[in-house]
Simulated assay, not measured.
Amino acid sequence: MRTDNRNIKSTIISIYFLLVVAAILLTTVFKSFRIFEGSSLYVIIGLALAVVAVHFVARYFEYDSDGSKLVITNSGLILTDYLNYREEKVEIDKHNLVGFKIRKLLVYKILIVTIKNSEGKLSKKRFNITLLKRKKLRYVKQSLRKIIKENK
């Protein structure tokens, strides 16, 4: 089974654009009308924190369980065509998959995959699945459960 959240990229780019436009607009409005003297810095800091939050949440997720290997990829959405600095890719044999867990934090979801290496030691890999739709997340869970069931 293959799935990803490719269609969310245009939404994230629009959110970045709106945050930058809002920062420029609010800065000029506060300076020209002298509304809230000295608080324009707080607005800019708030918008900068919003951009940072969107940056950490916005990750591309791809899951592929076709064939004998399980391939899970996480990478950034912005500038990935030019600079692929946030990519995490795991390619494992299906029989090495031991378990998985999905943690749901306030606005952040993580897929934790437990893998057995060639020496028999267990390692955990984490993937950001925040922007994966509920239906696709259900398919990923179903596929992982099926692989683990076949391994037992």
Rank of each mutant, 00 (worst) to 15 (best):
L47M: 15
Y60F: 06
Y16I: 00
Y108L: 14
I129A: 02
I12Y: 08
I15G: 01
N117H: 11
V54C: 09
K152R: 10
V20L: 12
R103T: 09
E87Y: 11
V57L: 12
I110S: 05
F36Y: 06
R59W: 00
F36K: 06
G67N: 11
M1W: 14
K135P: 02
G99M: 03
A23K: 00
K31W: 10
T3N: 03
F61G: 00
K116F: 01
R138P: 00
K121V: 10
Y16V: 00
D81I: 05
N96K: 09
K9E: 04
Y63R: 13
E87T: 07
R2D: 13
A22R: 00
R145E: 09
N5G: 03
L97H: 01
E119K: 15
R103K: 07
T73F: 01
D4R: 15
N74E: 13
F127R: 03
Y82D: 05
M1K: 06
V20R: 02
I45D: 10
Y42K: 14
T28S: 15
T130S: 13
K124C: 07
A22Y: 00
Y85I: 11
R145N: 08
L47F: 03
T27E: 08
K136R: 06
E119H: 10
S10M: 05
L105E: 09
V21G: 11
E119A: 12
D4E: 06
F100M: 02
K9I: 11
R86L: 15
V90M: 13
T27F: 11
N151V: 13
L26I: 10
I8A: 12
V71D: 04
T27Q: 05
I72Y: 00
Y85A: 12
D81Y: 10
I45E: 12
A53V: 14
N96L: 09
Y63W: 08
K141D: 14
R2C: 15
I35S: 09
L70I: 04
L47V: 14
K152E: 12
D66E: 08
T130A: 15
R145C: 03
K141F: 13
M1I: 13
F100I: 01
I12K: 15
F33E: 12
Y139V: 11
S40P: 01
M1V: 13
K125S: 11
V20G: 04
S68T: 12
I44S: 11
I24V: 10
Y139M: 06
K31E: 08
R86P: 01
R6T: 14
I129D: 00
I78H: 01
L97G: 01
S75L: 06
V98C: 07
L105K: 05
K125W: 03
I147M: 12
A23W: 00
V51I: 15
L19K: 01
S118V: 08
D64T: 05
T80R: 15
G99V: 02
L111Q: 01
K101N: 15
S39L: 12
E150P: 03
L26V: 11
T80W: 12
T80L: 13
L105P: 02
D64C: 12
L132V: 13
L131E: 07
K146V: 11
I8Q: 06
D93G: 04
K141N: 13
V113L: 10
V113D: 08
K141G: 14
D64R: 09
G67H: 07
A50V: 03
I44C: 05
S143R: 13
N7L: 11
I15T: 02
S14P: 01
T73C: 08
K94E: 05
Y63A: 04
H55G: 04
K135S: 08
T130H: 11
G76L: 02
